[in-house]
């Protein structure tokens, strides 16, 4: 699969990663090479093969649905690049 620069620009926007215009074209080339290389999987017959969903054969554990942790707002906010007491701060999102 060859990706063009418009597709790369669109994926980059979906992934919320800014890519400078000048880097779109070389990046499209790199990503196309990788996608072309992984497409050799097409040679493998996977008819009737279920996709792997669990790496080791264990059942996901269940637990009671109750609060067992909390009250750590200060610790959670301690690494925020910007904040107001008790809050994370972001640019204004509603007018």
């Amino acid at each position: 699969m060859a990706l063009d620069t418009d597709t790369v620009r669109r994926i980059a926007h979906l992934a919320r990663v800014r890519v400078p215009e000048a880097e779109l074209e070389p990046l499209a080339g790199e990503l196309s090479n990788i996608l072309t290389w992984v497409e050799q999987l097409g040679e493998v017959d996977t008819e009737n093969v279920p996709p792997m969903t669990s790496v080791v054969a264990v059942r996901l554990p269940m637990r009671e649905d109750r609060v067992d942790d909390g009250g750590k707002a200060e610790a959670i906010l301690s690494n925020a690049p910007e904040g107001a007491p008790g809050f994370f701060a972001v640019p204004k999102v509603v007018e």
Partner: peptide, 22 residues
């Protein structure tokens, strides 16, 4: 978001994020 992630991730990480998103 875009400015932070564009500046914060290096070339290989960016490559893999984009492949993954695709």
């Amino acid at each position: 978001y875009e400015a932070t992630r564009g500046a914060g991730f290096g070339a290989e990480v960016r490559r893999r994020i984009l492949i993954g998103a695709y």
